[in-house]
Simulated scan of single mutants.
Amino acid sequence: MREKRSSLGTAAIYTALTLFSVACLLPMLLTLMVSVTAEDSIIKNGYSLFPEKLSLDGYRTIFVNGSLIFKGYLISITVTVVGSLLALLITALAAYPMSNPNVKYRNAIALYFFITMLFNGGLVPWYLMSTKLGLTNNILALIVPTLMFNAFNMFLVKNFMEGLPGALRESAYIDGATDLRVAFQIYMPLCVPVLATVALFYALGYWNDWFNAIMLLDNKDLYPLQYILFQLRSNIQMLEMLPTGADSGYTMPAESAKMATVILTIGPIVFLYPYLQRYFVKGLVVGSVKG
């Protein structure tokens, strides 16, 4: 009887998880189907998983300047990879001394970092500092302004490190290891779950960033993908309001183009997440409750 009840409970759990997974996949599937739906069909029937008429006009509109899109992809991937790795390195190196009880005034320094979570200098000082540092019209303008790590991520790594046995550090000191060696050869490998979690946070931030491009770039060759698609969407909305389309019988694929931009932008992150998923929950939960 107990085994039967246990099997029914297991079946109920798997059923609930399956339904939840389907519910999570439906919006993405709907977005994909709308992106390949003819605009007149969207206007007539709205969004549908089973479109009346298929069309690739949304993607054709986006890739009208195909070389610019591909160049934007390359810029975004480069900025995301380089920026995430550098930000992760800075975050880990800041978190290690904060977790080391031998460091004097570590709590005061942690308070200094915590204040940055509550206040910031504002847009004008940020822009003036970026221009003074020469972060305009170069690839560094997309990396360095966002490189100053998020204090929340630093505290996640710090709390995770504080949960590791202190005897590891002490035994390494006895063997003559320096703090740099302890950090990179002992603590970093043990902190892979939380570092993978923080890396995903940084990657999402860099990949979705278009604000730095608006503020600091004038060179079209350096525009990231997100900013190119942002400009394209604005142009489509402007052209949609013009009366010329109705006279020619052509319907601007505004809605399908919007959904096509979503598909193009979420692709790399969707492929990246499965590789980090096994670390994500463990790193987030453990790093947030210890300390």
Rank of each mutant, 00 (worst) to 15 (best):
G283E: 00
N65T: 10
A151E: 06
Q231I: 09
W210F: 15
V36K: 04
Q226L: 00
I115V: 15
P101L: 02
Y14R: 12
L264Y: 03
M252L: 15
M33C: 11
R106F: 00
I266P: 01
N120V: 01
N65Y: 11
I69M: 08
L164N: 03
K258P: 01
M188I: 15
K220L: 04
V270Q: 09
F230E: 05
I269P: 04
T37E: 10
V285L: 11
T10A: 11
V144C: 02
I43F: 04
L32R: 04
V82S: 03
A172D: 02
S171V: 05
S35A: 14
G166T: 07
C191H: 03
L88F: 02
F271T: 12
G121F: 11
L54H: 13
C191Q: 07
A94V: 13
V194C: 00
N208P: 02
T80N: 05
L264Q: 10
R169M: 10
G176Y: 08
Y187M: 15
Q237W: 05
Y173E: 15
R278P: 05
D218Y: 08
S171A: 15
R233D: 02
D179Y: 10
S171M: 05
G72N: 11
I77S: 05
T146S: 13
A23W: 14
I42Y: 00
I43R: 09
I139E: 00
L140E: 02
